[in-house]
């Protein structure tokens, strides 16, 4: 099949010029794209020193991973990843960043020696993991491209204990029971975490002034109004209600 050169040129932006479009496996391309974004962003997380940038890179990495999930046919898990990981978890992270974002702590430099050691050890770990991943021939088989069945409803039914994807999938293995109990356990776990986190993070009434208060009293309170200093010494409540009150 021949293609109009204009079309081919349009696609040149993808860096795959001169390729017969019909031969392109778009799925592979998208995979490479998302995988590259995810891995690069992950490495950027390691490389960055600024906490907020780390958070941004992490979001990018996680979102790209969600894309990978979509590509793998796990739409529900991908959406879940976006919703909870990228949305919830990272909003929490940003909270933490803001609350602790005093200038000295926003960027704590990692030590060079640490980086070198971590690099060596990480390389060894990566090598081990990649070797392990590639060592099984079945995993290296190219994808069969069977259209993945819609997963949301079976997943939801599985979570309430009914497996509607029963035995007929080709070569599908695994127990044929639902996940009602794990689901409930996770629910209770989340509740416990909620309560525990609220308890841990609550402002304690203490007679002895906190170190942060001592720090704040040492430094001039005018620093709060300093335009360039970011939220120094501000607590969550005052941030939310606005410092101008």
């Amino acid at each position: 099949m021949t293609l109009p050169s204009s079309v081919v040129g349009d696609l040149g932006v993808l860096g795959v010029a001169f390729l017969p479009l019909a031969a392109i496996n778009w799925h592979s391309v998208m995979f490479l794209l998302f995988a590259a974004v995810a891995c690069l962003a992950a490495v950027a997380v390691v490389a960055a020193d600024n906490v907020v940038r780390m958070a941004l890179y992490l979001v990018v990495s996680l979102a790209a991973t969600a894309g990978l999930f979509f590509l793998a046919g796990a739409e529900f898990v991908g959406a879940m990843q976006l919703m909870i990981y990228v949305g919830g978890t990272l909003v929490l992270l940003v909270f933490g960043v803001m609350l602790t974002a005093q200038a000295p702590f926003v960027a704590i430099k990692s030590e060079g020696g640490d980086r070198v050691v971590a690099g060596i050890v990480g390389a060894a770990l990566l090598a081990a993991l990649v070797l392990a991943g590639l060592s099984v021939p079945a995993w290296r088989q190219p994808a069969s491209m069977h259209a993945p069945p819609p997963a949301a409803t079976p997943l939801g039914m599985a979570l309430v204990g009914v497996r509607v994807d029963a035995a007929e999938g080709p070569g599908v293995i695994g127990p044929r029971v639902g996940y009602l109990l794990p689901f409930e356990i996770v629910s209770v776990h989340l509740l416990v975490v909620l309560v525990g986190a609220a308890y841990l993070a609550r402002a304690k009434r203490r007679k002895v002034p906190r170190p942060i208060d001592q720090v704040a009293s040492v430094e001039p309170p005018a620093s709060v109004a300093a335009h360039a200093s970011i939220g120094r010494g501000e607590r969550a409540g005052s941030v939310l209600t606005g410092g101008s009150a």
């Binding site: 496996n25 799925h27 592979s28 991943g133 590639l134 995993w139 190219p142 994808a143």
Partner: peptide, 8 residues
């Protein structure tokens, strides 16, 4: 680009 991706 050509080949389908695999689990690996």
């Amino acid at each position: 680009i050509d080949a389908p991706v695999s689990v690996a």
